[in-house]
């Protein structure tokens, strides 16, 4: 009988209901989650821009055009401009060695690379004072050679390097491990030189992960506060990055100017989030054809 199949029809409906919650609970949970996110994330985001524009758009741009703000912005760009490429280079080297080769002590190396994530920002800055400060281990040596490595721009860069050290490596290692070594080996067997293989095979394969790591690394480099605050010495116009500039203005009760500078950093955070989301989508798209590859061969 043709009708015999009919009783089967409602089954998927029952099944979905059995593996999801009652509508009322769903609405309740969604309300709680969205409420929590609005309270903790959306409201602070709105507050930054509201406070920055409190005295109108003229005051906002005046605060940003101030010489101290401009020099802080320049120093922030300089610090990130040095720290991000160096850590990118390190990230690529480390992930190449770790993902493509086997060697004893690999797990220990992985743990050591993660180390800066576990260190309080304050301590990250402090170790450079212990190293290069006047009472520091290498302090007398640095002084004898006329090097001023703390309470100066090099100190800011060193602290930023330390804090952003793992970001690129952390993104690339799992990605390159998942990709394996076949494509590079094929390139080598077909006669590509080492650098040809690297630029034509490896880099195109890891480009989204690379970009993702650089975005995260850059956001932290530009926004780092604790570590930089310890080594900076807070010399206005000389060793103040944007986050430190925000702190000084805030502590001087110049709230509107503080939030104007802070809004630049919040804007950077939003750009980072958008870029990150886009990269994730592109990476997901790129992954889709990749998984079909084995069937093609």
């Amino acid at each position: 009988m043709a009708t015999a199949s009919l009783p089967l029809r409602p089954r998927p409906l029952v099944a979905t209901r059995a593996t999801s919650e009652p509508l009322l609970i769903q609405i309740l949970l969604t309300t709680v989650a969205v409420g929590f996110l609005v309270l903790f994330l959306v409201l602070p985001l709105l507050a930054v821009f509201a406070q920055a524009l409190e005295k109108g758009i003229g005051a906002y741009f005046a605060a940003l055009r101030e010489p101290m703000a401009l020099s802080a912005l320049k120093l922030t760009l300089l610090t990130a401009g040095v720290a991000v490429p160096l850590n990118l280079l390190f990230g690529v080297a480390a992930s190449w060695a770790i993902a493509k080769f086997d060697f004893p002590g690999k797990n220990a190396l992985l743990t050591l690379i993660d180390l800066p994530f576990g260190v309080s920002p304050v301590i990250s800055g402090m170790v450079f004072i212990l190293l290069f400060g006047r009472q520091g281990i290498l302090g007398p040596w640095a002084e004898a050679h006329g090097l001023k490595l703390v309470f100066s721009v090099p100190g800011l860069i060193l602290a930023t390097l330390f804090v952003t050290f793992p970001f690129v490596a952390r993104e690339l290692i799992p990605l390159m491990q998942a990709q394996g070594t076949e494509e590079e080996e094929a390139a080598r067997v077909l006669g590509a030189s080492g650098w040809q293989m690297f630029w034509r095979v490896t880099v195109p394969n890891i480009r989204w992960g690379l970009l993702y790591g650089v975005i995260l690394c850059n956001a932290r480099a530009m926004g780092e506060f604790g570590a930089v605050s310890v080594v900076s010495g807070h010399i206005r116009g000389k060793t103040n990055t944007l986050p430190l500039h925000v702190e000084i203005l805030y502590n001087e009760y110049n709230f509107q100017a503080a939030f104007a500078a802070a809004s630049l950093l919040a804007f950077l955070a939003l750009v980072t989030l958008v870029a990150k989301t886009l990269v994730e989508w592109r990476a997901a798209e790129a992954r889709a054809p990749l998984t079909e590859d084995p069937n093609v061969h």
């Binding site: 969205v34 996110l37 602070p44 930054v48 920002p121 990150k276």
Partner: peptide
């Protein structure tokens, strides 16, 4: 509605410099 936005926003505390988070929460 707004689920993808919320999802992306979860990383906001990662991306926002801590000093900005500090002064904003204090002001709020």
């Amino acid at each position: 509605p707004g689920k993808r936005l919320m999802d992306a926003l979860v990383d906001f505390p990662f991306a926002l410099p801590t000093a900005v988070a500090g002064i904003t929460l204090t002001t709020l």
